[in-house]
Each structure stands twice: as structure tokens, then as C-alpha cells.
Computed example of a mutant assay.
Amino acid sequence: MTENNGQGSSGHIEKSSTGLDYNVAGLLTYSLGVITGILFLVLEKDSRYVRYHALQSIFLWLVIIVINMFIQIIPLIGFLFSLLFAPVAFVIWIVCMYKAYKGQWFKVPVIGKIAEQQLGDFKN
């Protein structure tokens, strides 16, 4: 999607209904995974940007948790796969936080599309 610099017509940074700048709120949706995703989804009333990142955070972390659980049940090589998966998940997490802070509607493949569809189902 496109990058949004978050500046309104008066030149000031947009605020979310939480009182935070929209980009800071977007970053925080990823900070504690599903917990902060749900928290911001419930609290945010105005900003589609923050709600999108909250939804993407929820779905992303649920996928990471499920994949990690599946990897852990594989005998012997599951441990090795988890050693490879953990840094990949960490990098994805950092990239999502960075992109949200920069004001970008960054989409994680598949998960971002689902979050966008769910956002369309929410009515303010």
C-alpha cells in the first residue's frame, strides 16, 4: 500500500483516539503481540491505520504461535527448526514495528490481506 506521513492539513501529526501519535500507536500494536493487538483494536475508535496494524499484529502473532507449536512437536529436528524459526519471527516482528512507526501500511504476505479484509468488516 502507500506510505502515509500522518500529517493533517494543518501540518501536525495525526493523533489516534488513544491520544498517541498514529505511528507510535501503530508500533505499539506489535510490542506485546496478541495482547497489545487486542488492546489497541478495542481502544482505537478513529484511526484505520492503528486498527489495521492491531489486526495484523493479532493475526501475525497467532500464526507465529501456531507454527512454533507445530515445530515443537516434531521429534528430533523440531528443535533445530525452532532455532531457525525464532530469528525469522524476530526479524518479521522488528520489520513490522519499524514500518508501522514510519507510517507505512506494510502488509505481511497473506496475513496483511486478511487484516485488511477484516478491517473492511469493522464499521466505526
Rank of each mutant, 00 (worst) to 15 (best):
Q117I: 05
G6R: 06
G11L: 03
L28Y: 08
L39M: 08
A86S: 12
I13A: 03
G11D: 11
F40Q: 09
S16N: 08
A86M: 05
K107Q: 15
K123G: 08
N124M: 12
T36V: 07
Y101Q: 01
S17D: 14
A89R: 04
I65E: 10
V63R: 00
F70C: 10
G11R: 12
I67P: 06
L41F: 07
E14V: 00
F85Q: 05
F81P: 02
I94H: 02
G103W: 08
M1H: 10
Q117Y: 07
R48G: 12
V63Q: 07
L27N: 02
F85C: 02
I111Q: 01
G33M: 10
A100P: 11
K102I: 07
L41P: 04
E44G: 01
N23S: 13
K102S: 13
L41C: 08
L43I: 14
G26T: 05
V42C: 01
L55A: 03
L62I: 12
V88C: 05
F85T: 06
I35P: 04
T18I: 10
Q104R: 07
S9T: 13
L20F: 09
F106E: 14
G103E: 08
L76Q: 13
S10G: 03
I92H: 04
V63M: 11
T2E: 15
I58G: 01
N23W: 08
G26Q: 08
M97E: 12
M1S: 13
K15L: 15
S57K: 01
I58W: 03
Q7I: 13
I77L: 15
V42M: 11
V91F: 09
I65G: 02
S10T: 07
I77T: 14
V34M: 01
L28S: 00
W93F: 09
